[in-house]
Design a protein around this nucleic acid. Structure first.
Lengths: 232, 232
DNA sequence: AAATAATTGTCATGAAATTGTAAAAAGAAT
DNA sequence: ATTCTTTTTACAATTTCATGACAATTATTT
């Protein structure tokens, strides 16, 4: 599985050039042009490295850095700055950056530093741990025992299919997943059941976990596509 | 059960030769000569690999790739291109391809890459890749969650058609697209609606994203032709 | 400039497609 | 055989978006 990098740079041509180069090195790259977009990414996903331009519209890189560090002490941050040196560097490191590169920079150099920093990433080491207990709202799912605690603390014994489907939806949380994707992953390669089967499982989940099954909060339908599991 | 490959190539002799070879390797091969046929396959079947010629009549391979990726981030896509290198490769990878082969290619080489890519396919399904968020002005579109943030920070849940149309306009940003093109791409092989339908969607978009819907800045009409999405 | 034609903006409406739901049938497991 | 799980089926409820009418705008002709 590839390492993930978040690239925050407002200048389009530079951003795209860097992104392209990182992708050719087989990193998965998400890019943002503004600080707010960057923060949204960060609150939704996990990265192995964040590359951050100091000079951004709206919000400067230092402030973003600080905000990131409030939530996440680990992901390495690499600063890009146009200024010559000294002051920015100190400021950056003080605010929680890990490394620092002066624009205009040499691409080779960037790639080298990226490599070093990504390796350092803590998450990189602890990433693949299987999820055992997952909680959302007042609900709890224990994948090890296949038991769940749902509405009003009620215990539910989950079946295999239920567990697998829940697992998939949770992995994909926040994202829309099509019925095709669901069938393909949960049912694997044997001949699929009709997609209506999926709806019935969702029906069960809503019964277990939704305070008001008619107005679901976690197990959302996306008309014409499939479903979306939401955490909050 | 054998792995399934979708082969999209307009040149008959090449398509049949490749198909034959893949079948000798025990793959199940579906083949299509046009983009629309390919999309029809994709919308009701699951593949372990899609081999896509860049140069196709009607709709080019890049656009098809993008359309696939809107719904399915996992199935590996292998590009075939006649051009020498560089630009196409970059373009392809940017649009979501996984690998790339220059025509004329060696069959051994093709089979080798196919093998690698197919293996990657099944296991990676649950990969939780970073979200792709597109921003313009103060607006944000998240294709993975089918949510957008528009005027005054208001959240909008997008429907599939809205998502698909936005995707297309954004792919073609800065360029004028005719209604016919839009119908072709977004509505695909189905029987087309009247072009008035498109206007309705544009109307919605302006409502979501334009500060002053009467004086659009992003979703521009081009009288006598169609529409143009502009970034800035 | 005015009149006319063509295109686009806008909105209410309903048909068609999708999803919710529950009960029955089919398949597995004990 | 009995119980539990999964799938199918049928019908109700809901959502989407395609359509058509008319207004507003833009282009073309007189």
């Amino acid at each position: 599985m590839n390492e993930r990098i978040l690239l925050v740079e407002d200048e389009d041509s530079l951003r795209e050039a860097v992104k392209m180069n990182l992708e050719m090195e087989k990193y998965e790259v998400a890019d943002a042009a503004t600080g707010t977009a960057a923060l949204r990414y960060i609150s939704n996903g996990v990265f192995d490295l964040i590359i951050l331009d100091v000079m951004l519209p709206e919000m400067n890189g230092f402030d973003i850095c600080e905000k990131i560090r409030l939530k996440d002490k680990n992901t390495p941050i690499l600063f890009l700055t146009a200024k010559n040196a000294g002051k920015d560097r100190v400021e950056g490191l003080k605010r929680g950056a890990d490394d620092y590169l002066v624009k205009p920079f040499n691409l080779e150099e960037l790639l080298l530093r990226v490599k070093v920093l990504v390796k350092r990433s803590v998450k990189n080491q602890a990433k693949d741990e299987p999820l055992k207990i997952y909680t959302f709202g007042k609900n709890e799912i224990n994948f090890a025992t296949q038991k769940a605690i749902g509405n009003r603390g009620k215990e539910v014994e989950l079946t295999i299919r239920e567990t697998e489907l829940l697992n998939f939806l949770i992995i994909k949380k926040g994202k829309v997943v099509s019925r095709q994707e669901i069938l393909n992953f949960v049912w694997g390669y044997k001949d699929f059941p009709s997609t209506r089967t999926i709806d019935n499982f969702i029906l069960s989940f809503r019964g277990y976990f939704e305070a008001d099954p008619r107005k679901p909060k976690y197990f959302l339908s996306v008309h014409g596509v499939g479903y979306k599991f939401s955490d909050k």
